[in-house]
Design a protein around this nucleic acid. Structure first.
Lengths: 361, 361
DNA sequence: ATCATATGTTGCAGTCAACAACAAATCTCG
DNA sequence: CGAGATTTGTTGTTGACTGCAACATATGAT
């Protein structure tokens, strides 16, 4: 495998074509010529090349309704490159085997009942682990170089998850944090493709955030939103600090809590209403710091933060308004994700495909 | 100019060679062969090509002391590509004309006395504006797409500085914020080259921060450190918010203030000592939020924050320890910059050269 | 049925980088 | 002091890739 020379050009173009098809679905050769800015003949050669190596399938003649010879349609062959994606939660593990182009080929979910997630993953990926080119695990917490430095939810600190998974399954794993994975998912397969700096907030047992800049996960990604200190010297947090957002909001922790509180507040329960409002304000203040520090143009409220945001949009916005400069707010959209709780799994898969495509270059 | 094809390969290699020489100084062809991973003959062709177009000068035979034919030394020709760099401060404008390779060819400084910086820049760059391939202005504040969205120091809001500079000088300008420029400078020409995520704090009339990730300025860069809210509902700030770091620390604003306070504290002035300690704690708390949100591995205290940090390292560190997770702290180095107050100007120039090299690709 | 239109296909030309053989310049060791 | 070892520049050749232009093909429009 030559690392330089004209062959590199070919590799890059091949990778670009595969990426294009993976991201934007089946396309005619004419569209590919336009999209990649290459010559017709070059696209023809590339497509033939990729068809021979099995990545791409070409189906003839699709009548467009306009004049001219119909263009041949190229599309990904899902089984040509598969990615194993896994999402670890407190009480369950979700698994998907995704094919090139994004089609989900297999899918499973395992309740943990106190088992180690690594064992559950090893069991569920047993049949497919070797077939997948990449394997990616999304885990809630602070991830650094494959290792989980800190996870409130799982009670882990400094666990080398990539190594444990490798030992249990006999293959390499990439580890990302749930929020960053979800951000990647929403950007690539969701509704946030126009965002140049996307901040995804994930509410699970803990609160984390992930940033996607120009479509790529921010290096050293995960933001421990739950451990932004909103009340200096406030309540003691499990992490050892004081006044963390997580500690101050500890009355909540699940979507159901929010729904109960919202229901109670609607029925005139003043304490519930105040609790919701205060939580919204705390969240808005923590966000203020994150927005000032990172300057996103879009924020998605995921996990149970979705419910909290929908119930408390006004206090969130006003607290945000009190803690960020007008210009940063003016270009900022606040929304909820469109992939629901599939975002992290989708994003984990897309992270894998990014590695696959990079590996072709 | 073909955008694809084999010529692109050549362009990329040419650019890589120039970048290598610009960043690491004169090198032998043998070293270039090693660094770029290309063949000897290819390097020879590239060097000849670049020598002919005037970017590179080759001087023969440098005896290394070891066996073998002495390698020819290649070095940048400064005048082959010049960059105009300008730093705007509250009361003065600094200018440098920098040649390829980093040599400063001209330099000037103009006191403003209330004049518009744009006029001063137009005057000082009159002779050289057309000769420079790129022109970059560093300005303290929140910069977005060439426009200064907010600057406490200069009292600007929404000023399209790039357009104003273009109108006054008859050429295009790139606008960056001072802190990000200084971060780029410290990374490329300073001491922080090993940092993968460098956070530079700039203390001028306002407080800003800039982030350099893997050697590249963070997109949408500047962080308004001074407007991180450290005391919700605290003192009113000029920006309209309450409890901003800048407002809470308003007793300071210049290095001399710190020196006076340090002197007074040393002579037993309890109020001065308390003020310093409180400022250090406020800074540490604001930093806690920024560190949690961005996860740097190195922080440089620039401008008068250098003096504050040197005087109050202990409270800064302890406040930081109270507001960030241990893992984020453990890999974090706190230091002061090595380029002094030259960092921003250096970084502005390097930003220009990055554009020059990108333009060659 | 014929022409216009859009697209795939084929052969050719230009360019590039790797390779290998050779030339040049220095050091080392006897 | 000289021969071999060593490192590096140079040259000619080769294989590969993309762009281009001419041609072939398949459709719609008249």
């Amino acid at each position: 495998m030559a690392r330089t020379g004209t062959e590199e050009l070919r590799r890059r173009n091949r990778a670009a074509l595969v990426e294009q098809l993976h991201r934007h679905g089946p396309q005619t050769r004419a569209e590919l010529t336009e999209a990649l800015g290459l010559n017709r003949s070059t696209i023809g050669a590339l497509a033939a090349d990729l068809a021979e190596s099995g990545y791409v399938q070409e189906t003839t003649g699709r009548s467009t309704g306009s004049a001219g010879r119909p263009s041949t349609l190229a599309e990904c062959v899902p089984k040509a490159a598969m990615v194993t994606a896994v999402e670890i939660r407190v009480d369950l593990v979700r698994f998907a085997l995704v094919g090139l182009g994004g089609e989900v080929l297999e899918r499973a979910e395992t309740e943990l009942d106190g088992d180690d997630p690594v064992d559950a993953i090893a069991a569920v990926t047993r049949g497919t682990a070797r077939d997948a080119l990449e394997a990616v695990a999304a885990v809630p917490g602070l991830v650094d170089a494959g290792s989980v430095a800190h996870s409130t939810e799982l009670g882990w600190a400094g666990r080398d998850l990539a190594a444990d998974l490798a030992a249990a399954t006999g293959r390499e794993w990439q580890v990302v944090d749930t929020a960053t994975a979800a951000a990647v998912g929403e950007w690539s397969r969701g509704d946030a493709h126009e965002s140049t700096k996307l901040l995804y907030l994930h509410g699970g047992r803990g609160l984390t955030a992930g940033l996607v800049v120009d479509g790529r996960a921010q290096r050293g990604g995960s933001i421990q939103l739950g451990h932004i200190v909103v009340q200096p010297g406030g309540r003691e947090c499990a992490c050892g600090l004081r006044g963390c957002l997580e500690a101050e909001m500890e009355v909540f922790g699940y979507a159901e809590d929010i729904e109960h509180a919202t229901l109670a507040a609607g029925m005139g329960d003043g304490a519930a209403r105040d609790g919701l409002r205060r939580s919204g304000e705390d969240l808005g203040r923590a966000l203020g710091a994150v927005v000032t520090a990172t300057g996103p143009d879009e924020i998605l409220f995921g996990g149970w933060l979705r419910e909290l945001y929908l119930a408390t949009a006004a206090p969130v916005r006003s607290a945000l308004a009190e803690t960020t400069l007008p210009h940063l707010r003016s270009r900022l959209r606040l929304r909820t994700p469109v992939l629901g709780d599939e975002g992290a799994l989708t994003g984990a898969a897309e992270t894998g495909f990014a590695a696959v495509v990079d590996g072709m270059r």
